[in-house]
Each structure stands twice: as C-alpha cells, then as structure tokens.
Amino acid sequence: MESKALKGSRGIIAVIALMIIFVGVSTSLLQLNGNVARGISPEYNALAPYEAPNNLASWVYDYRGFDTLIETGVIYVGALVSVLAIGRGIVRTKGVAEEAPVAQSSMDFHVSSLNVILKYFGIPVIILIVAYSLLVLTGAATSGGGGFQCGVIFSSAFLLGMIFYGKKNPLNLSKKFLIGIGGFGWALYALLGLPGYLVTGYWQYNVGADLWSSGLISGVSGMSAVVPDIMRQIFGDPFRILLVLSDGTYASTAGIVPLINIGEAFNVIGAIGLIFLVFAYGYTDEEGKSK
C-alpha cells in the first residue's frame, strides 16, 4: 500500500479505528487479568502424563490434532499460493487471447563474491543445522520442539546453502522434490488419522496411546470399538516412557504423535524450501521440462 493512500481523511479514520481497537483490547485484557476461566484446560493437563511428557505435543498433535492438520495445510497452501504468484500453475483459456502473465524476475545472487572462509565454513554449519533439525524432530514428544520447528530449521540450512553456494548447494533440493515432499508430508499427516478411523470410527484417534479403549482411564462410557493389540504394537510401544511425577508414575506413550511430527516436518521443509527456491530463482515451466 502506498503511504499517500493513508494521508487525509483515510489516515484519520485508520488512526481512530486503530485507537479504538487498542483501547478495546487493552481494557478487555485488564478486566480479564485475574479472572481468566480455566474451563477445559485442567482436564487436558490431568490427561497429559498418560501421553507425551511434552504436554504441548499432546495438546497440539493429539487433543487438537485435527486443528493442527488444517494449520499444516495453511503452510502448504501458503507455499502453493506464493509460488503461484511467481508463475507455477497459472492457467490459460483455450482459444482466448488473454493478457500475458505478469513476468517475475529472479533475484541476482553473486555467489562468486563471497569470502573463501565463509564458503568453507558453510558446509559444516549446514551439516550441524540439519543435524539439529533432526534432533528437534526426534524429541518432539519428549521435549520442546517438533515437526514444524524441524522444518523451519532445516529450511534455514537450505537457505544458507543457497546464499553460500547458489542453486547447486550441498542440499541441492529441486523444485519437483520440494513440491513432492511437501505434499507427502501433509498427506502423511492426514492419513495417520486413518488407523484410528478404521478401528474406532474417530478420525485421528491416537491408536498408539489409546487412552480411552484400553481401560487405562476408568469411567468412560459409550466407546463402541477398541484398538486391537497389533495396532498398539505398531504405533505405541517404541515410544513408551516411564514418567515419575510427584503424584505418581505413569507409563507414558505418545502413540502416533511422533509420526505426525515427521509428516509435519516434511510438509514444512517442502513448503518453506520451495518458497525460498522459487523466490530466489523464479519459476518457468520450460525449465522444468528441459530437466
């Protein structure tokens, strides 16, 4: 938006509107200070020790796991739309003379101008960043972090590689690969809901943790199906941890949460990596064909 668009009466209206919003939100937050209702959160917290030791992982990928599936979709669609703005996926009507697509030029990288020390420094740094991203991913259920963070950290390694070494960088991820891996990640996340759906009828029921049909928690009524042992073996046991807390010891398992995080990581790597690559080097269909 041009700054001159906010001059005059429009600017005054915008300032007044922002002030009203600021005052409204501030007074609301002040009134809520000390009066915040706990609502459903104590229930979630009480269940947490049965699942991921990282409570946040249980919230984000189990109780509210379907929210996160669609949020993951926001990242995927964000990449799709960003790359569309550069040129991938523009469509033309048969036989109708339409305005030519808006041309986008690629950024001008001068890799050769970089210091030699930086170039040699780059490879170990990229290796370390990638290793760190994998560490964050594998610890998703037990410590802070997860698939999204892994994807962002990995993508930053890819960006660093592009800045230091250009298109042919050590990671050398192609557009096609990034599109594929991003789609694979979102699809994997979505399809991890299938085992629970087939067994219990609930999409994304955490068959590995199986809090509700295993008899782990008492006083549950109305669940019609139970998870067979084979499912529990596939999805649960590798991640079981004994949690020793002040109120007792819990055999905790995150079930499908770590697998979902892997899907999330692939999706984020594909989406953000594609944005970096296409924004830096542009996109043409001819280029894809020649390869």
Binding site: Y63, F66, G201, W203, Q204, W212, V220, M223
Partner: peptide, 16 residues
Amino acid sequence: FTGQPAVLPTGGYTYR
C-alpha cells in the same frame, strides 16, 4: 476428531 470423549458434569467421560 481424535476420539476424545466429553467430560460429564457429574464425573466420568462419555462418547454420547
């Protein structure tokens, strides 16, 4: 979604 039940006001959980 995710098959978590509802918490009954009287205690316990239900899928109804």
